[in-house]
Amino acid sequence: MTTRDQMLANIKANQPSVLPLPTQFTFVSAFPDLTRQFVDILTFVGGTAVLLPDMDAVKKHLQEQYIGLSSIATTVPALASLSDMKLDVADPHELAGLNLAIIEGPLAVAENAAIWVDEHQLPQRVVPMITQQLVIIIRQSTIVPNMHDAYKQIQVDATGFGTFICGPSKTADIEQSLVIGAHGARSLLVCILP
């Protein structure tokens, strides 16, 4: 008998008779203002939010925000002029010098300021972690109240990889002192379009 078969046989012999799944495992979150909630939580987790009317305003804001910065890459065609690097590389190691990545998030969650991105947004999976600074552009219309709503909308295996990103990378491993910028991006700016 292989280890696999032996393990599965042991499990079958030892598991209890089948118990029911819960009748309720999704809940409704009633936030008066989803954008407001999203922004509050994003601020709480160390991110920054800015509400902007259109892509031109985003471009202008980013130009001002990251003045003089090089090694910038984006997947957003309208912002291509800001970039001097490409994300669509064959080897992810080529992104080691990336200072700023500007990507889009197709869905955001108000309760926890998480933004879903998958390989539709990420030419390389490592982009949101390897970059020094991260900008994600979302739309107010795609903010859902909570994680139950999010999982109803996304298909987790639509691509080979997807992740919820909530704020910049952080750690509190030294005496519970919060430090922003652990191994992933040191900052997260979320541009919110209508």
Binding site: N112, V156, G160, F161, T163, P168, K170
Partner: peptide, 24 residues
């Protein structure tokens, strides 16, 4: 994911909740 980080550190969710389905 609504329970894990809130229970662990009081964060609303971890910074990265990464879903792996296929190798790149």
């Amino acid at each position: 994911l609504r329970l894990l980080a809130r229970s662990a550190t009081g964060q609303p969710i971890t910074t990265f909740s990464s879903h792996f389905h296929r190798p790149r």
